[in-house]
């Protein structure tokens, strides 16, 4: 078993290199990179000041161009550049953001709590609501409650989270003014007392969390329901009834334990998603999280940040997969990875 997880850890390395190498190569080839942008800035600056440096076509002095290239690591061939970058990553140096002029690690770490805050709350909410709801739907399969909740769930599933967020924002925030129009925290945070802070934070949390969780609500509830329904039809459930166990014990003691297996193992995969945030939802609600950061860094060709966010997400998702396997071993005694 130990060897299995050791092997999985080792296999992370080639996967990680493959993913990052691909994105690294793309950053080299896509037009509009940092040099282009620098040149654009210089051009704009020179046009504003009215001075003409090099005639109609913009020319940057060879020396400054070389300096720029060196600064962004573009002076080396691609594979050398990649190796340099990789070596820096190994030493936990993700480079410097071209936009923020700060170390990338700081830029990311500053935004982490925001994404984790929404991700975790949405995630916890989904589990707290979906597991009991799924169980109830399975036990009362075909009842009014089952049918109406299915309708709601599928409606929620078919609307993308950010769209639902936008609609709710316009309606509840814009029309009814029940919730704020966005942002992570209310203004004047520093001057609030504790309860004001709690209330303020809650107002700012409700809609983004709903938007985050809407999609997973459907999948999780239906997964829970189907898994339990399937187990209720198993032979060992019949055995449990034949022993004389009350229905409650059969469902919760026998069937539910087995049907929680796929749900538990989903936790590992969820870790990556929680941390990654969501570009669109953060954009709609004007929250400055990791998703928003990643999105902007691509638009602005802030490649150090793009690669940094990629590194963190890749590592989290790969670790999440291993965590899933590990949870599998914990909850299902039949699984033994060799």
């Amino acid at each position: 078993m130990g060897t299995y997880f050791a092997r999985r850890m080792l296999l992370m390395i080639p996967t990680f290199i493959g993913i990052t190498m691909l994105v690294f190569a793309i950053t080299r080839f896509v037009p509009g990179g940092p040099i282009d942008q620098m040149m654009l800035k210089l051009q704009e600056a020179s046009m504003e000041s009215g001075t003409d440096i090099g005639g109609s076509t913009m020319e940057i002095p060879e020396a400054s161009l070389a300096a720029l290239k060196e600064r962004f690591g573009l002076d080396l061939p691609m594979w050398q550049g990649y190796l340099h970058w990789l070596w820096d990553v190994v030493r936990l140096d993700l480079g410097t953001s071209f936009k923020f002029n700060e170390p990338v690690l700081d830029v990311i770490v500053n935004r982490f709590p925001i994404s984790i805050y929404f991700g975790l709350i949405g995630f916890a909410l989904a589990y707290v609501v979906c597991i009991p709801l799924g169980v109830l739907k399975a036990v009362r399969h075909g009842s009014k409650l089952d049918v109406t909740s299915s309708l709601l769930i599928f409606a929620g599933y078919s609307i993308p989270g950010w769209a639902l967020g936008a609609v709710l924002l316009v309606f509840l925030g814009g029309q009814l003014e029940l919730v704020p129009l966005g942002g992570f925290r209310p203004e004047g945070w520093a001057d609030m007392d504790f309860w004001e802070k709690v209330r303020g934070q809650a107002y700012h949390t409700i809609l983004p969390v709903l938007a985050y969780a809407a999609g997973s609500f459907a999948t999780l509830t239906i997964l829970m329901k189907n898994s339990l329904m399937e187990n209720l039809g198993q032979d060992f459930v019949r055995t449990a009834f034949a022993k004389g166990l009350p229905e409650r014990k059969v469902i919760f003691g026998h069937a539910l334990r087995n049907s929680l297996i796929p749900i538990c193992t989903g936790l590992g995969h969820a870790i990556g998603l929680i941390m990654a945030g969501s570009y669109l939802i953060e954009k709609v609600f004007n929250i400055n999280g990791i998703g928003y950061l990643g999105y902007n860094s691509i638009v602005e060709r802030d490649y150090a940040v793009v690669m940094g966010v990629l590194v963190i997400n890749t590592v989290l998702i790969l670790l999440g997969n291993i965590l899933s396997d590990f949870l599998y071993v914990l909850v299902d005694p039949r699984i033994r990875f060799e």
Binding site: F236, F241, G244
Partner: peptide, 21 residues
């Protein structure tokens, strides 16, 4: 009555036992 007075065993002993208990 079930289990105490009248008990039952089934064809598939693997699937008739709870795998995680």
């Amino acid at each position: 009555v079930r289990g105490a007075k009248i008990a039952m065993i089934f064809q598939e002993p693997m699937s008739s036992l709870n795998p995680v208990m």
